[in-house]
Amino acid sequence: MYYPFFRGKQFELLAIRESAEVIADAGFNPIIEPVRETFSGLQRTLQELVNQGATAAVIVNPRYGDLKNDGENLAAYLTQSYGDNDAISPALLLTSTMNVDDVLEKMSPYEERPLHLVHAGFTDGKGLAASLPAGDYTHIFLDARNTLYRRPFKGGRRILVEDGFERKKNADYGFRDRFSDLHVTFDELGGDGYGDFLTVGDHYAEGGGPAYAVAIHLTFIDSVQDDAMFVYHFVSDTNDTPVDPAGKFSQALGKLIAEVDRDGSNVLETSAVQEFRDLHDRGHFPGLGYVKKLSIKHHLETLAYFHSNA
Rank of each mutant, 00 (worst) to 15 (best):
F197C: 12
G201M: 01
I88C: 11
E18F: 05
G121I: 05
F28V: 11
H307P: 01
V103H: 05
K9R: 15
D281P: 00
N29S: 13
Y77T: 10
Y64A: 00
D202I: 03
A91L: 05
G41K: 09
E33N: 05
S131E: 09
N69D: 15
A310Q: 15
A310L: 15
D136F: 12
Y305L: 05
E259F: 11
D227K: 09
D240P: 00
L13A: 02
T123F: 07
N85S: 15
D240F: 08
D244V: 01
G41N: 14
I23S: 07
L132T: 02
I257A: 06
V161Y: 04
G209H: 09
V118D: 07
K68M: 09
V273L: 00
N266V: 03
N99T: 06
G190P: 06
P30T: 12
P30Y: 13
R145Y: 13
K168F: 10
H139A: 00
Y3L: 07
F234N: 03
A272V: 09
F230H: 13
R150M: 10
E275K: 14
F220H: 13
D226P: 00
G195R: 03
V231Y: 13
Q47M: 07
R158W: 08
D237R: 12
F5L: 14
F175P: 06
A91F: 04
K169Q: 14
D84E: 15
V235F: 01
L256H: 08
R63Q: 10
F5E: 00
D196E: 02
Q251W: 02
G53I: 09
Y77W: 14
T79H: 13
E105V: 07
P30R: 10
L14I: 15
A54Y: 12
E105H: 09
A57V: 06
H280S: 15
G121D: 08
F141Y: 11
F306C: 08
L300M: 12
L42H: 04
A134M: 08
V103I: 09
T95G: 04
G8H: 02
A246L: 05
Y137E: 05
H183E: 10
T185Q: 14
G121K: 08
D244I: 05
K154L: 15
N61F: 07
T97H: 11
F5K: 03
G190C: 02
N69S: 08
F11Q: 03
I32E: 05
F141D: 04
V243F: 12
F197W: 12
Y290G: 00
